[in-house]
């Protein structure tokens, strides 16, 4: 299935409008053993899923605009009152009230450190990140949660100060639009399409 044929979706008046191909089947092949005995068949196909972000949409749209958004519980009757959640949580996990969106970009630029990390050459199918992958789990001052992302420049270490960079040139509207680099990294070192 070519990229041009691949299914596209719009939402109009609360309904999905689908154009193009969302699934494509191929002829199957038999599987034989070395003695010429039939063992099974392959089942090839391509499928495009449709997935809605719902209340998290502002987060993923914000990344493409260079914004790191979190949320905050501001229910005075809740034990979590004042807690900031990043990863972005639509509802407070304690009172289940609707959280308020807060812009965490400046906080991330001023005080983000690597809580832990890992580096690997191994990936699963469909990976698009360059190898080796460097995961960093980033903690922010005053935030009880720790965000997972990937480092684009340098070698990760626990305690390292990092700053966010954003894929603002051609956003994918996924978590991959957010990356991290060591504090002090020059603009010339960051991946193409990303900005501070």
């Amino acid at each position: 299935m070519s990229t041009a044929e691949r299914g596209k979706v719009r939402v109009e008046k609360g309904r999905y409008r689908l154009d193009g191909k969302f699934h494509y089947g191929y002829p199957n092949d038999p599987i034989w053993n070395e003695d010429g005995k039939l063992m099974g068949v392959t089942n090839p196909r391509d499928v495009t899923h449709v997935h809605m972000y719902g209340g998290e949409a502002p987060f993923f749209e914000g990344l493409g605009k260079g914004k790191l958004l979190g949320t905050c519980c501001d229910n005075p009757d809740c034990e979590a009152d004042g807690s900031i959640f990043i990863p972005f949580r639509i509802h407070c996990p304690d009172c289940l009230g609707k959280n308020t969106i807060v812009d965490m970009t400046d906080t991330a630029r001023k005080g983000a450190t690597v809580h832990t990390f890992m580096t690997t050459e191994r990936t699963g199918a469909f990976n698009t990140l360059p190898k080796p992958i460097r995961f960093v789990n980033v903690e922010f001052e005053g935030v009880p949660t720790i965000l997972m992302g990937y480092l684009s420049v340098g070698k990760p270490e626990i305690g390292m100060k990092v700053v966010p960079i954003f894929n603002t040139a051609s956003p994918t509207y996924t978590i991959l639009d957010l990356s991290w680099v060591p504090d002090g990294t020059n603009e010339s070192e960051i991946p193409e399409g990303f900005t501070f």
Partner: peptide, 23 residues
């Protein structure tokens, strides 16, 4: 793992665990 926040990161569960191992 969380399909929006974790899976796109390498599509490799071992990695999501390995950060805990590292700590």
């Amino acid at each position: 793992a969380d399909k929006d926040w974790e899976t796109p990161l390498g599509h490799i569960y071992t990695g999501y665990y390995a950060v805990m191992a590292q700590k």
